[in-house]
Design a protein around this nucleic acid. Structure first.
Lengths: 201, 201
DNA sequence: GTCTATACGCTGATAGAC
DNA sequence: GTCTATCAGCGTATAGAC
């Protein structure tokens, strides 16, 4: 996740200024507590520009949302390209999410700590978005459960993503004192044990 | 959780009308997308009354919050009174939360699916609120880990409450097709296995 | 393309009658 | 205690100058 400044999806520098400012404000105060005027001030551009580029506040939030989901998607691409076993891929994804929680908390917060439905009612539910369905699939593969029911898959998914999400939120809220990476090994051990996955095979 | 209509904490019928209306609207549209006028309409009372009883919209949300946390607290009281082993207590709490997700989805949604910080900035973070710290303690007891580190406790807690929360959210969002109670046994089996708890002892 | 000033609607809040 | 009518402020969105 090369962050928002990356050239590819942020060709216009002014786009980045707006997105970055909005991201920080949204994460700090929540979407509804941030006015366009605030964004304008923080980004040091005019309101007119915000409308020209994103067609208003909701447009900014939407662009931000898609942008970040995209970066998450690319993170998964990278992991898949560099790791064979599905279980190892899951481990790597979790590790990178934990690392990003330290280095880019705003991005992680915007994804894992925000209720998008309340201001982006037309977007699909987040866990129906592509990166998360992909993760769900990898989990399915990693637990080699040919005959696992739909329900069991959902439980497995909830165990993994639920605990990961919860830890991330605790960390973002300051309730987890140490960087999550330090919890990684213990977490994985308990997860695989619960899911009956033997990593040595 | 005798729901909002209970006499004890809802002596005034008009209080209940307001709280119930507000709860439904908040859950459906999100706090910021609900105006006082909407609440007034839905509750079929005057704006003046809302101010008289709760001192405005935020007051309603706050009362609702405390009220529901209270009911959750009493649910825990009941479980503790009727169940000995901590691990069994946890199981019972989860079971009841799953059941309430079917019978009173709005209440569960308001607790598990809402970001209160964005409109109740003065309330403590939810997982610092009493019922959740109590649950955390029961989890600690159930896993008989005298020498478990703070970090390990946090991981255990995240595994249990994280997966439970995630399942509840999937259910509330309509992504889990079946009532969660049907998932209970499998979930518990995987949880205890992951946490190294032997229920037969 | 970028900016500023302005208009309009909505929301929270109050005052005052009953 | 309950209600209705009204106000003030803010937030979004636009129009038009540069």
């Amino acid at each position: 996740m090369p962050y928002l400044k990356r050239q590819a999806s942020c060709p216009e520098p002014i786009d980045c200024k707006i997105l970055t400012a909005a991201l920080n404000l949204f994460v700090k105060s929540g979407y509804h507590n941030v006015s366009i005027h605030k964004i304008q001030e923080e980004a040091d551009v005019s309101i007119g520009s915000i409308y020209r580029h994103f067609n208003g506040k909701e447009g900014v939030a939407q662009a931000l949302y898609k942008h970040i989901l995209n970066e998450l998607d690319e993170l998964i691409d990278d992991v898949i390209a560099n790791t064979q076993a599905p279980a190892k891929q899951i481990e790597e994804i979790i590790k990178q999410l934990f690392e990003h929680t330290e280095t880019h908390p705003e991005i992680i917060s915007y994804i894992f700590h925000t209720k998008h439905v309340e201001f982006l009612p037309n977007e699909p539910l987040m866990f129906d978005a592509e990166p998360f369905t992909r993760i769900k699939n990898i989990i399915k593969l990693s637990i080699d459960s040919n005959k696992a029911s739909e329900m069991e898959l959902q439980i497995n998914n909830s165990l993994i993503m639920g605990s990961v999400t919860k830890l991330i939120q605790l960390r973002l809220d300051g309730l987890a004192k140490k960087p999550l990476v330090e919890s990684l090994d213990i977490l994985l051990e308990k997860l695989w044990q619960g899911l009956g996955v033997d990593l040595e095979t």
